[in-house]
């Protein structure tokens, strides 16, 4: 557990490379069966280079990252989570999630999050509000 102050960084989360099978599983689990995530031909007909990963898959990675961060602190919950999708992610991409503390008060920790692919390109940015019971 670390003392959380402005600028504190959490343990990065490096995800395995995205696979097409993963996108099929995620479509089934999330209910988002948009064919641009599943069918190359449909994706290309809409002007995309091929299937793209669900944006919400990256947001799920943000959720896992925050769960890891809260586990390290020993307690707390996510009060609010937001994500803006900046660039598409594709099968084969290795996404790394990083985050740091923007502000801390007696009740809440505000965090900035980012997702980058293996080339260092920013694919999503996010923000989370955490309530952490112990801030020492």
């Amino acid at each position: 557990m670390q003392d959380l102050v402005k600028g504190s960084r959490f343990e990065p989360l490096v995800k395995p490379a995205i696979t097409r099978e993963q996108l099929e599983l995620y479509a089934e689990a999330s209910g988002d069966k948009n064919p641009i995530h599943l069918d190359d031909d449909v994706a290309k007909k809409t002007g995309l280079p091929g299937v793209i990963a669900h944006g919400m898959l990256t947001m799920a990675f943000f959720g896992e990252f925050l769960h890891q961060a809260l586990a390290a602190q020993g307690s707390g919950r996510v009060e609010e989570l937001s994500c803006r999708f900046k660039a598409m992610a594709f099968p084969g991409d290795v996404i790394t999630i990083n985050g740091h503390v923007r502000t801390v008060d007696s009740t809440y920790v505000e965090c900035d999050l980012e997702a980058r692919n293996q080339k260092g390109d920013l694919t999503a940015i996010g923000h989370a509000t955490l309530s952490v019971l112990t801030l020492t």
């Binding site: 993963q22 599983l25 689990a29 999330s30 209910g31 947001m59 799920a60 943000f62 896992e64 989570l81």
Partner: peptide, 25 residues
Amino acid sequence: LFFDAVAWQLPARPPAPPTLATAFR
């Protein structure tokens, strides 16, 4: 399945995936 789909790699799984709300679209 949601946990499997996001390749959850932490040792413990919470009672629900953190972004389960996405299934309510």
